[in-house]
Amino acid sequence: MNVKLAVGPLLYLWDRASALHFYAELCQSPVDIVYLGEVVCSKRRTLQREDWPAVAQMLRDAGKEVVASTLALIEAESEVATACRIAEENALVEANDYAVVHALAGRAFVAGPHLNVYNAATLTWLARHGARRWVAPLELPLGTIGTLSASRPANMEFELFAYGRMPLAFSARCFTARAHRLQKDECGFVCGQYPDGLTLYSREARPFLAFNGIQTQSAAIQNLLPHVNAIRDAGVDILRLSPHSHDFLQIVQTFRDVLDGARLSLPESFLPGGYCDGYPAGAPGIAHAGHALPN
C-alpha cells in the first residue's frame, strides 16, 4: 500500500479565521489524516471548544481520518482534566503523555512522538494498551525504525515527521513571553504574532532555533522529501507534515506526487533556517545533506 499523508496538529497560535481557512482548504488536498487540537499551551484558544467538532466533521465529510491530539506537557489539574475529557469524547486520540494513555483505558489510540518509544519492548507494551499507530521520536534514525518495523506488533502503523520546524523541547516557561519581557500569566497571547515561531539566531546571525511558547523548535524545517524511498523501505506507512503558514498546500501536493513516483523538489523554504534532514541518518538533526530531489 502506498504511503499515506497526515497533517500534524497545528503547533502555532493562529487566529480563528486563518485556522478555519487552513482546515477548509485541506478538505480538497490529497491528505489522508488530519490531527486536530492544541498540543503546546493550555491557555491558547485557537478555536473554541465547539469549533473543533465542526472542523472534524467537515474533514470527515471530505474523506479524511481525524485524530484528536493532546498536550505534550501536562502539569496543572485543569490540564489533566481537559486531556482526559478529550480522551473520552473522541473516537481516536493521539497521546503525548502517559496520563492520556491511562485515561484511554485500553481503547485504540495513536502513540504520539513525545511518548519516547525507542525499542520493541515499549512498542509491544503500548500495543497491548491499544496503540495502533506510532509516531516515531524525532531523533530516532531510520535504521532503528526499520529494525522495529521488522518485528512490529500486528496492525501497528508507523508514522514519521517529514516536514516542518521540529518540536525539540518543552518547558514550563514560555520563551516567547520571556522574549517580550512578559509574565506567562499576562502573556497577551504574544505567540500569536509568530505564525511559524519566533526565530532565535546564534551571535553570528545563523538561524538556530525557534520559540513557540513553551516549545523550542528547530529554526530549520525538517524536509524528508528527498528520502521518501528509504523511508518507505524502512516500513513507514504515514508521513506527517506539520502545518506552516506558507506554501502548505503545494508542499502537500509535492509530497503526494513524489510518493506516487514523480521527481520533484520543494520550493525554497520561506523561513530563515532553510531545510535540515540529519536525524534519519543518525546525524545531528540540524545537518542537511543537500539533495533536493528524491534519490
Partner: peptide, 8 residues
C-alpha cells in the same frame, strides 16, 4: 522530552 542536544 528534550532533543536539543541531538539536534546539534
Amino acid at each position: 522530552r528534550c532533543a536539543l542536544s541531538s539536534y546539534v
